[in-house]
C-alpha cells in the first residue's frame, strides 16, 4: 500500500533520514519506534506529502507522491487521516468545525449529512455533545480524541499517528491505544504510528520498525523486536541510559 524507498532528508547540513526503506501493507498497523529527534515525525511528514525528500520515493498504491504537488497531491492525501502529536486542533474553530473541516473539503456532502457525521465520529471516540466547545476548553485526552475524530471523519483508508500517547496519563494513553485498535477493526484502515512509548507499540502493532541513525535498523513483529539481538534495539526498548546509543 505504502512503500518508502531510500528516503533521504537533510536540514541545514544535518542529515536526518539516510535511506529509509519500509512498507506498510493493507490493513496493517506498523509502528515506528525511535529516540526523540531521530526523524520519526520527519518520516511521517514525508509520507503525507508535507515535506519533499532530498532523495528517494514514496509510493502510495504505486503512485509516487514525491512527484506530485497541489491538487494532484491532495487527491492522494484525501486517503490519509493524521493525528498530530499536539493534536493541532484549529483553536479559532469549535470542536464541531474542527471535525467537519476535512469533510467540507474532501466531500460534497450536504450540511445536514456533515453535521450527522460530526456527531457520529465524535461518538466513535466516546465524545458526545461537545461540538460547540472550543479546543482550549478540552482536557489533553479529549483533545487527542477530537483530533482522532477529525482524522477519521472523511473515512480515510490510511491513518497516521504522530506520538498518539505522548502528553497524556497512562490510563488515557491506554484508552487511545484501544481506539487505535478499534479504528483499524471497524474501518479496515492501514495505520502508520510513530512513538517512543513501548507499551503502546506492543499493544497496537502488527509490526514494529526501529529508526536509528536515519535508517530502519530492525523490523519485525512485536515478539521479534522484544527478542531482538540488536543491542541498540535492546537498549531502546528497555530504556537503558547505558549502551550503544550515546546520542541522548
Amino acid at each position: 500500500m505504502i512503500r518508502v524507498v531510500d528516503l533521504h532528508k537533510s536540514f541545514g547540513g544535518n542529515e536526518v533520514l539516510r535511506g529509509v526503506n519500509l512498507q506498510l501493507k493493507r490493513g496493517e498497523t506498523l509502528v515506528i519506534i525511535g529516540q526523540s529527534g531521530c526523524g520519526k515525525s520527519v518520516l511521517l511528514k514525508h509520507v503525507i506529502g508535507l515535506l519533499k525528500p532530498d532523495r528517494g520515493k514514496i509510493y502510495v498504491d504505486g503512485v509516487d507522491i514525491t512527484a506530485l504537488d497541489g491538487d494532484e497531491l491532495h487527491k492522494i492525501t484525501r486517503r490519509f487521516g493524521m493525528l498530530f502529536q499536539g493534536t493541532a486542533l484549529f483553536d479559532s474553530l469549535t470542536v464541531g468545525q474542527n471535525v467537519s473541516f476535512g469533510l467540507e473539503r474532501y466531500t460534497n456532502y450536504s450540511e445536514e449529512r456533515i453535521q450527522a457525521l460530526v456527531k457520529e465520529n465524535l461518538a466513535k471516540v466516546g465524545l458526545r455533545g461537545i461540538e460547540h466547545l472550543m479546543p482550549f476548553e478540552l482536557s489533553g485526552g479529549m483533545r487527542k480524541r477530537v483530533g482522532l475524530a477529525r482524522a477519521i471523519a472523511y473515512n480515510p483508508d490510511i491513518i497516521l499517528y504522530d506520538e498518539p500517547s505522548t502528553g497524556i496519563d497512562p490510563i488515557r494513553a491506554d484508552a487511545i491505544n484501544n481506539l487505535i485498535i478499534r479504528m483499524k477493526n471497524e474501518m479496515q484502515a492501514s495505520e502508520l504510528i510513530i512513538t517512543h512509548d513501548m507499551v503502546s507499540a506492543y499493544k497496537v502493532a502488527d509490526r514494529i520498525g526501529m529508526l536509528y541513525g536515519g535508517k530502519i535498523i530492525e523490523m519485525g513483529t512485536p515478539e521479534e523486536i522484544r527478542n531482538s539481538k540488536n543491542p541498540v534495539v535492546q537498549q531502546f526498548i528497555h530504556g537503558n541510559a547505558e549502551g550503544p546509543i550515546e546520542n541522548w
Binding site: 511528514k45 503525507i48 506529502g49 508535507l50 497541489g70 491532495h74 492525501t77 484525501r78 490519509f80 487521516g81 493524521m82 498530530f84 502529536q85 499536539g86 493541532a88 486542533l89 484549529f90 483553536d91 479559532s92 473541516f101 476535512g102 473539503r105 474532501y106 477529525r150
Partner: peptide, 20 residues
C-alpha cells in the same frame, strides 16, 4: 496568529485536511 498555527502544527493539519 499564523506563527502560532505554524509552531503548533495547525498549518500542517490544514494541508492534511485538504486545505491549501
Amino acid at each position: 496568529e499564523i506563527g502560532t498555527m505554524r509552531i503548533t502544527e495547525q498549518i500542517d493539519a490544514l494541508f492534511s485536511l485538504g486545505a491549501d
